[in-house]
Amino acid sequence: MHYTKINREICIACGLCQIIAPTLYEYDENGIAYTVRDGNQGVIPVEKEEMDLFKKAYTSCPTGAILRSTQPFSEKE
């Protein structure tokens, strides 16, 4: 399993992640991305059918703001 969340401090609101994987990522009122399903906590795994889109978004992010893990993220991360 893979988990994802956005490092919102380095997100530049370019729009790529939401364009590539709209079921995974959305933007707040300031244009900063977050994960849709868990409010950017990184505790709900990426669905199998979304893995290709997740990988494309992850590798396309110009700042590396999309984080991934094989374990749920802790509150401190």
Rank of each mutant, 00 (worst) to 15 (best):
P72F: 09
I20R: 00
D38V: 08
C14P: 01
C11T: 00
C61P: 01
C17P: 07
T4P: 01
E50D: 11
G64N: 13
K48A: 07
V46C: 02
Q71D: 15
M1H: 11
P72C: 10
S69H: 10
T4R: 05
Y3V: 05
I19L: 12
I20F: 09
C11R: 01
P22L: 08
Y25K: 05
Q41S: 14
K48P: 01
G64K: 10
M51Q: 11
A57W: 03
F73W: 08
D38S: 11
E75R: 15
Y27S: 10
Y25V: 02
N30V: 07
N40C: 06
L24T: 03
P62N: 04
G15I: 13
V36Q: 00
Y25P: 05
E77C: 06
A57M: 09
T4V: 01
D28F: 13
D52K: 08
R68G: 09
E29L: 12
Y58W: 14
E9R: 15
Y58P: 00
R68Y: 13
S74E: 15
K48M: 06
Y27K: 14
I44K: 07
C61E: 02
P45C: 09
H2E: 07
L24D: 03
L53T: 05
T4G: 00
I32G: 10
R37Y: 13
A65N: 06
T23Y: 06
I66G: 00
I66E: 02
A21R: 01
E29A: 14
K48E: 08
R8Q: 15
